[in-house]
Design a protein around this nucleic acid. Structure first.
Lengths: 223, 223
DNA sequence: CTTGACATAGAACGAGTGTTCGGATTATAA
DNA sequence: TTATAATCCGAACACTCGTTCTATGTCAAG
């Protein structure tokens, strides 16, 4: 091997972007020659060449021998994020966090669909994960048993961010508004009638993610 | 005119259904011959014939001379419900409810997108509306200022349903779990640490809708 | 410089696909 | 029944489109 294989080059990304844009605009995928024009590639064979690579990378799926028969993989719906639910979150247990290497299978059972329009425009969805609240220990955060919390991976926070925090010294997980004060951190409950807790700066404090959204499905089934 | 023009015949509907199904399954639209097979039409010309009609009816859109270049018109994002936000909801004000006759313009500003997968399978979306909570008077329902409550129009409720209730005698709006008891209604807060309120059966009580979901967007902007 | 993987180009081919046209069939109003 | 519009069929045709093959260019390691 004289030259090592690269990952996603500009060309790859440009093609992927164009496919997404084209589908959004037309409602159906582009033909290979459309991709030629859009990317400035002058030969259909080159596009074929890249499409084959993208297929092998798992970025797109193709049904051969048929025109326009390609689709973006893991893009079930362009208007939705399907966010993996990594596990339960409870006051007494550490927070499950995404593993850098792993990919998560987020089907309808262990994932949650969130409309893109509900999240910030720039949000790409890659660092989002969800946790299902277990028990009633998050009531001070106005979060109930069974609620789903959407988080974005983070290890630090700005003042005013609502974050998921693991306090190793106390064996405690908590969701609070985060404020850095002179000698301590102030962790403010969302419920304005409740009092903040204070953590001295020498006490370990692990921020696991920023809370982006809370979704509560009210089961009318449960009597 | 010997034979009057019908609207949508079985054939038309069958073709539309198949296109939708095919797009869902494959991620791109079917070729004319695919439609032939699916509908039992033995000639491509007949499909062309119907596609032309469907185009004229505005049911589909086509870009001619190109394969698979068709899409369902007004395809309202089959995976999303866009639910109109009718107004604010507060403890001291009546609940805005949908007007039977009116249609609501639910754009991204005064509407909220909710993934179909988050609602019951049978849900059609027609009777859904949303309200934005104003103030902190719903804290007993674990609902905060700014939360969005998704409701389904209803004027009665089963035990255990969470409902939006207007109590005319008290000039009070509230969100509670609803239980009918012997001589009274018990309205139970979602927060298990809080006490229920009781309403005698002779006191007027208007159920406006069942709560289906609560969505909280955590603004990290607000410091 | 040579080598070999990676990248690009162009052209030719054949299968996929939409269109068109003549003609047959069916249903319904008169 | 008859006339007419609606519907349907099959085949032919032309264009679209994906594939394949050959040739050339680029770049970095040996």
């Amino acid at each position: 091997m004289v030259r090592t294989k690269k990952g996603l080059t500009d060309r790859h990304q440009k093609i992927l972007d164009f496919i997404e844009e084209y589908v959004n605009k037309h409602g159906y995928p582009p033909a290979i020659r459309d991709i030629c024009v859009a990317t400035g590639i002058s030969s259909t064979s080159v596009v074929t060449y890249y499409l084959k690579q993208l297929t092998e990378m798992g970025k797109i799926e193709r049904d051969e021998k048929s025109s326009r028969a390609l689709r973006l993989a893991n893009a079930p719906r362009r208007d939705l994020f399907r966010i993996p639910i990594l596990g339960p979150i409870a006051a007494g247990a550490p927070i499950p966090v995404p593993d850098a290497g792993a990919t998560y299978i987020a089907d309808e059972i262990n994932g949650v669909d969130v409309a893109r329009s509900l999240l910030p425009k720039e949000e790409k969805g890659a660092q989002l994960f969800a946790l299902k609240v277990q028990g009633e220990s998050m009531i001070d955060a106005m979060i109930n048993d069974g609620d789903i919390v959407i988080l974005k991976s983070a290890i630090e926070a700005k003042n005013g961010d609502m974050v998921a925090i693991w306090l190793p010294a106390r064996d405690e997980t908590t969701l609070k508004y985060f404020y850095k004060e002179k000698e301590r951190y102030r962790l403010q409950p969302a419920n304005p009638t409740m009092q903040p807790i204070y953590v001295n700066k020498d006490e370990p404090l692990e921020i696991k993610g920023k809370v982006m959204m809370v979704i509560r499905r009210v089961d009318t089934v449960a009597a």
